[in-house]
Computed example of a mutant assay.
Amino acid sequence: MQLALYRTLWGVTSCLDDIASQLKAVGFTGVEGRIPLTSEAISRFKQELTRNELDYIAILFTGGNVIPDQSESPQQHLERMARQIESAQTLGAKFINVLAGNDRWPMSQQVDFFGQAQELSEKAGIICSFETHRGTSLYSPWPTLELIDQLPNLNFTMDISHWVLVCERLLNQPEDDLSSFLDRVYHIQARVGYDQGAQTPHPAAPEFKTALKFHQSTWQSIWQRHQAEGRNITTMTTEFGPDGYLHHLPFTNVPVADLWSLNDWMALEERSHFNRFINTVDG
């Protein structure tokens, strides 16, 4: 099994032509980013992907905003999802990472919504992997596990940093049994969170050693599952980002770390981590 590393486009303002060589120097296979919203932007982005020989994981928000518009209905979410699936396919996306739903909907509505969302994915013939993210239906492990009981065939993108923040603890106790979720993780987003934040100032800092170890243990558990399933490739996106995630010094607003370097460090660290894992398995 091989590890395909992707780099988030969250916080990147340069075009792919300007950054492709940097991405490849670190070992990134491709990029993960939001689906462009206009035909012109889609065409331009597709040309850049092709020209630079980069693979693409599409990001789809079913809601009209990153944090869902509370007034939107599940049907509005589904209609937007259907439109953007077509755009992702035009771009040749390997699969679609979906930030889906609304954390306020009751469970019966969640089950109906995700059942229809899965039908859209199957009808289009492209994998939709639903991301664990605050503000969406999958904001917490506990409703997610309840959803899995009723819809066991869903695929998930694991960004467990959100759950660590929501629960205010590393989910590493025997009572925190996430096995039914881990069995269904399709894709990993690699960002290290801690009990009071979804992104550490720097994952290499010794004060966050325990948090890093926890995240790496969950990622490795996914690799073990993918290896057992016979997958040839397992995917991971480094996803350190801005927008309040990146820590800044008060008054000066100076970032405490370089965002590009954070993602490079995470990629190199996880490449080394994966190589250790796979060598142990093969040995």
Results as ranks from 00 to 15, higher is better:
66 V>A: 11
43 S>M: 03
67 I>T: 13
33 G>I: 09
74 P>V: 00
63 G>L: 08
71 S>P: 01
62 T>R: 05
71 S>I: 11
36 P>H: 10
75 Q>D: 11
69 D>Y: 13
56 Y>F: 13
33 G>C: 03
34 R>Q: 04
62 T>C: 07
58 A>W: 14
63 G>C: 02
78 L>M: 07
58 A>R: 06
66 V>N: 14
43 S>H: 06
34 R>A: 12
42 I>A: 13
57 I>V: 14
46 K>A: 03
56 Y>E: 00
72 E>W: 10
78 L>Q: 05
40 E>A: 09
77 H>Y: 05
36 P>K: 03
59 I>G: 14
37 L>T: 10
75 Q>Y: 05
39 S>C: 11
56 Y>H: 06
33 G>K: 04
55 D>P: 01
62 T>V: 14
42 I>C: 14
53 E>F: 03
81 M>E: 08
33 G>H: 09
60 L>T: 10
54 L>K: 04
57 I>H: 09
54 L>D: 00
73 S>M: 03
79 E>C: 05
50 T>M: 10
73 S>L: 13
64 G>L: 09
81 M>T: 10
36 P>D: 03
33 G>L: 05
34 R>Y: 01
42 I>T: 04
47 Q>D: 13
78 L>S: 11
43 S>Y: 02
50 T>G: 07
53 E>T: 02
71 S>V: 12
63 G>F: 11
70 Q>E: 13
49 L>N: 06
57 I>Q: 08
36 P>N: 02
77 H>D: 06
55 D>I: 00
76 Q>L: 12
48 E>L: 01
47 Q>T: 13
72 E>C: 14
34 R>D: 05
58 A>E: 08
43 S>P: 04
44 R>A: 04
52 N>V: 02
51 R>K: 05
55 D>K: 12
33 G>Y: 09
52 N>D: 04
77 H>A: 13
68 P>Q: 10
53 E>D: 13
48 E>G: 05
77 H>P: 09
44 R>Q: 15
40 E>P: 01
45 F>N: 09
69 D>A: 09
67 I>D: 07
64 G>E: 06
61 F>E: 02
34 R>N: 13
48 E>Q: 15
44 R>E: 11
65 N>S: 11
70 Q>I: 12
56 Y>G: 03
